[in-house]
């Protein structure tokens, strides 16, 4: 399956909904979206990965790049993911310590606001 991207605003946070496969072919589209959102002043991002079917290290690189960009503006980039197959690559690479990973969009928003 190809990559589908959507985004909407909720509670001062831009929610990016990702569906499909994030790999070396599709990752540039996600990267462009994240850059575009940050350039438009959205520095608190939540990437909802509940419908992601595949994620490789190229996709991880895009997420890490997005995190760097929002942090440069004192922003945040958190993830929503409960799929073990996707979480596994975050664990292998040690990125579970870098990203906030939550079970729902609302939980991600609440956690950020409570900090």
């Amino acid at each position: 399956m190809d990559l589908k991207l959507d985004h909407y605003t909720e509670d001062d946070t831009e929610i990016v909904v990702v569906e499909g496969e994030i790999d070396v072919y599709t990752a540039p589209r996600l990267r462009e979206l994240l850059i575009d959102l940050v350039n438009k002043g959205n520095v608190h991002l939540v990437v909802n990965m509940e419908k992601v079917e595949f994620l490789d290290s190229t996709g991880l690189g895009v997420l890490v790049g997005g995190l760097k960009r929002v942090r440069a503006h004192d922003g945040t980039l958190d993830l929503v993911c409960t799929q073990e197959r996707i979480l596994k690559i975050f664990r292998i690479t040690g990125l579970t310590k870098v990203f906030g990973i939550y079970e729902s969009v609302q939980e991600a928003i609440d956690k950020r606001k409570s900090k």
């Binding site: 070396v24 990267r31 790049g65």
Partner: peptide
């Protein structure tokens, strides 16, 4: 992997070695 030490804005935000590590 040291993702916070190597965060280029390129598509490949991580070193190719990360792929091998995976």
């Amino acid at each position: 992997t040291h993702p916070e030490d190597s965060l280029p804005g390129d598509v490949n935000g991580l070193s190719p070695d990360v792929g091998l590590a995976v």
